[in-house]
Design a protein around this nucleic acid. Structure first.
Lengths: 218, 218
DNA sequence: GACCTATATTCTACACCGTAGGTAATACCT
DNA sequence: AGGTATTACCTACGGTGTAGAATATAGGTC
């Protein structure tokens, strides 16, 4: 009966589990992700994971934390002006989301209170204060910026503006009847770069312009 | 053996199922929602639902569609100017999200290609064209606006900016160590109305200002 | 009215899920 | 060397989505 291998160390750790979970979700998506799939990926009993992470919800938190850490690590040095900081943060955030398109919905859904997130917000708001902007405008800015980022990335990374297109060929198909929506149909060609870098930069500048205008006391 | 009641009509329909699903998610949340729960709510066998809606994914689509219809029905009459239309749409969208806070994550996550959604976008973009705005700015506007709306509502409706507060008393608790984040700590009082109407109006105007500035050819 | 067919409903069954509770083997500290 | 805490595993329970088959009603055709 001494067939068991129970106590033998499997080298599990919160870090290793989180890394494997990120990989697994990247490969197979959030839908099919689960404790048991992850355990079999790690060659381990499902229950072993519970010694390091309390449950599935905590597992998802660990995934969020792991990819968020990538974001703050991305920018080696930060600009001094608040707009530069905001731009750098937004781009690093988008780069991460593109690296992990199936994880980014998690970030948008779950409240962000981790240390890395708070550090980033502290950096941005401190720079805005240095620039002499009104406190209320500063307090509002992060929610406007990250609200937009989350919503925009959610929209562009999972689906497209009506219809399926082939990511390989990049050929978009309208997939809606153009007759009742003449303006949308006319505008469709301009949405060719949906989710692309140029589009992102345009929209980011649009949002930053709004924040800047309010910062200027408009 | 003639105890079965199988063929007896239960009065199911796509509409009735969707309405019950909306009610159920409103009451008990998305986490616990499922085909079986919904079926027992309707006093019906789980598989009966499949005669009207193909599966769980289609069920979630039906929920989205149902609440989206509320949005377009909300505005009795629309302004003529594009900013007025955008404001009206944004407010109706927020009202719906507040009525169904546990459903709104669904809208942000799933691509919106339903007729009601397209109609709304057609109305907005047509008004912008009438105002003589450059096509690229028009084409970008909906994604900026609804990106922000989805991200903002996601953030405000499920959780708050770091820490739990009691919705009854409305007393917010920072719940993060203020020492490493002096600016955030100083700004915390200004986030008292987190998720409130005043805050929403300020941020909506911020985003609209950005769109307007680009519309003006900046 | 009598028959036939399409459709709505239910039943059964399967593979999977998250996780509570209990047990064994190792690692670490004294 | 001995004792304890940690790590890992096993078993089991109640839940899930849904494929497949059985059955009773509704509606059209003669």
């Amino acid at each position: 009966m001494a067939k068991r291998t129970q106590g033998k160390p499997a080298g599990l750790s919160r870090r290793r589990i989180a890394a494997a979970a990120v990989d697994l979700v990247d490969r197979e998506g959030l839908e099919s992700f689960g404790v048991r799939r992850l355990a079999s990926e790690l060659g381990v009993d499902p229950m072993s994971i519970y010694n390091h992470i309390k449950g599935k919800a905590a597992l998802l938190d660990a995934i969020s934390e792991a990819v968020l850490t990538e974001v703050s690590a991305a920018a080696a040095q930060w600009p001094d002006d608040w707009m530069g900081i905001a731009r750098t943060m937004a781009r690093a955030y988008r780069d991460m989301a593109i690296r992990h398109p199936r994880i980014s919905p998690l970030l948008a859904t779950r409240a962000q209170t981790s240390a890395v997130a708070l550090e980033a917000l502290e950096r941005l708001t401190a720079a805005m204060r240095r620039a002499g902007i009104a406190d209320q405008a500063i307090a509002d800015a992060p929610l406007v910026l990250f609200g937009f980022l989350n919503g925009y990335l959610l929209a562009t990374l999972s689906g497209n503006p009506g219809g399926t297109d082939d990511p390989a060929t990049g050929v978009a198909q309208p997939a809606f009847d153009p007759a009742p929506y003449p303006t949308l149909a006319a505008l469709a060609p301009l949405q060719a770069g949906f989710g692309g870098e140029d589009e992102f930069e345009r929209m980011l500048e649009t949002v930053l312009a709004g924040i800047a205008q309010r910062a200027a006391g408009a």
